[in-house]
């Protein structure tokens, strides 16, 4: 049995459960892969689910696995919409493929890069991973657009998401590239940011495209 198929079904059980049901017929409706008796048998054999009448219920391991699939899928969606600026519809197919092969450490990496997002672009909850829980504990810096910083605060540029080439080139040619620490000097009437070398005035629209890891003030 192909592992992808199992993951698809785990995913649909999770989604159905989110809607408040564990009914097998419902699960079948939400699945993009066919939920055959064979698959259900396989799931039972691997102790991922138990059957209770018409309902399919997760076991502890099953829930853990399903959680990871969902997490990968929804993080991929976030990555595709936030960073690559795809629409939510466009992302679906790619995200479906991502969910099957993202290694755990890469998943964590993406999650950190995106600032441990809580929901996917469709508004569903992204189950938190270990990195998110740790981040909450250590108040680790998160990636936010430069516009979310207040004057005087600073951050390290994580990535620039602009669609426009000349714009990106201009920022780069001023030396404003990922890795550079910048601080916000003022926000109105025009954004001014500064690095140790340069003070740069730019429009809000451009500042929105620059994502930074916020630096926490040392208490």
């Amino acid at each position: 049995m192909h592992v992808n198929l199992i993951e698809e079904v785990l995913e649909s059980i999770w989604v159905t459960e989110e809607k408040g049901s564990s009914n097998l017929a419902e699960i079948k409706k939400h699945s993009c892969a066919e939920v055959s008796d064979e698959v259900v048998e396989e799931l039972l054999k691997n102790k991922l689910v138990t059957i209770d009448g018409d309902d399919l219920l997760f076991t502890e391991t099953g829930r853990e696995q399903a959680k990871n699939v969902i997490r990968r899928h929804r993080l991929a969606e976030r990555l595709l919409t936030d960073v690559l600026k795809r629409t939510a519809d466009e992302t679906e197919e790619t995200a479906c493929e991502f969910e099957h092969f993202l290694a755990p450490e890469i998943t964590e990496g993406i999650c950190t890069l995106l600032g441990h997002p809580k929901t996917c672009p469709h508004g569903s909850v992204i189950p938190p991973g270990t990195c998110c829980i740790e981040a909450r504990k250590t108040v680790e810096s998160v990636v936010i657009p430069l516009t979310k910083l207040e004057p005087g605060e600073s951050g390290k540029i994580a990535y620039i998401t602009t669609q426009s080439h000349p714009r990106l080139h201009k920022l780069l040619s001023f030396g404003f590239a990922p890795g550079l620490t910048v601080s916000v000097h003022q926000k109105t009437p025009t954004f001014i940011i500064e690095s140790d070398k340069t003070q740069l005035a730019l429009e809000k629209e451009i500042a929105e495209d620059i994502f930074v890891w916020k630096k926490e003030e040392s208490a």
Binding site: R167, K170, T190, Q199, L200, A201, L202, E203, I206
Partner: peptide, 9 residues
């Protein structure tokens, strides 16, 4: 065009 301008002290 984009407004990106260097400001000198």
């Amino acid at each position: 065009s984009d407004f990106i301008m260097e400001i000198f002290p």
